Amino acid sequence: MHATRSMAPGWRPALRLFATALATCLAGCGASQPGADVEVARIASPDGAVDAVLTEYNPGATASFVYRVHVVGHDDAWDSAPVAAELYGATRNASAYGVDLHWRDAGTLEARYLRARSIEVPKSKLDIDGHAVTVVLRAGVENPDAPAGGMAPAP
């Protein structure tokens, strides 16, 4: 029992040092790793009632970009809005990732892209404060003017 007591004080500084190093690493690593979605496009509907918002999530070097389409009230935050469509690995041309948003009319949003590895459409019909919006995905649309890489600005 005496041996345990004499060893414990020696371990405490080491344990504190380890805990501090771990906390520092986690805080620093979290800031430099890919993380949360970033808003990369926002377009108001023709009547100005709602906004279409496109976000980009960068999961890191071993995976492709994830694009999420949200529809929100004009100038509202998108982070609590449901995802209308999610496109993994969507491209706009041979060297540009992303999705282009266009309003066909005040109630129809079109998400245009060349190709995508996978697509999920959890909620294509939305009601935003009494404003009905249908989200339509349109593959095979090339945007030759889209710059290479992802849509989010470089840090």
Rank of each mutant, 00 (worst) to 15 (best):
G150A: 06
M1F: 03
P46N: 13
L54D: 00
E39T: 05
S80P: 00
H70A: 07
H102D: 14
R112Y: 05
I128C: 00
L15G: 12
R115V: 11
R42G: 07
A27V: 14
G130R: 01
R12T: 11
P46M: 09
A148H: 10
G150R: 05
L126Q: 07
T91K: 12
R104G: 03
R68K: 10
R42F: 08
A132G: 09
M1T: 13
A146S: 10
R104Y: 05
A94N: 04
S124T: 00
P59C: 06
A84N: 01
I119E: 15
D76M: 05
A84W: 00
E120F: 02
A148E: 13
A44W: 05
T91E: 10
A36Q: 07
D129T: 05
L87A: 06
D129W: 01
P153N: 12
R5Q: 12
G28F: 05
W103Q: 04
A14T: 10
R16A: 15
G30L: 06
M151K: 09
A8K: 13
D51C: 07
G130C: 05
Y97Q: 13
H102Q: 14
T24Y: 02
R104K: 14
V38E: 13
H2E: 15
R92K: 13
V121N: 02
G60T: 04
M7P: 05
E39C: 03
S80K: 14
L87I: 06
R138G: 01
H2A: 13
K123H: 12
R5N: 14
A85W: 08
E56R: 01
H102K: 11
A61K: 08
Y97D: 14
S80A: 13
Y57I: 06
D37G: 11
A90F: 15
V72L: 02
V69R: 00
A85Y: 07
P153I: 07
E86I: 03
L17Y: 08
D100F: 01
D51R: 07
P59Q: 05
E110N: 07
V38A: 12
A21P: 01
H2G: 07
S64T: 10
S32H: 04
R5E: 09
G140Q: 04
V53G: 06
P153T: 09
A90G: 11
N93T: 02
A41L: 08
P46Y: 11
P13D: 01
H2W: 04
A146M: 11
Y113K: 06
K125T: 10
R92Q: 15
K125S: 15
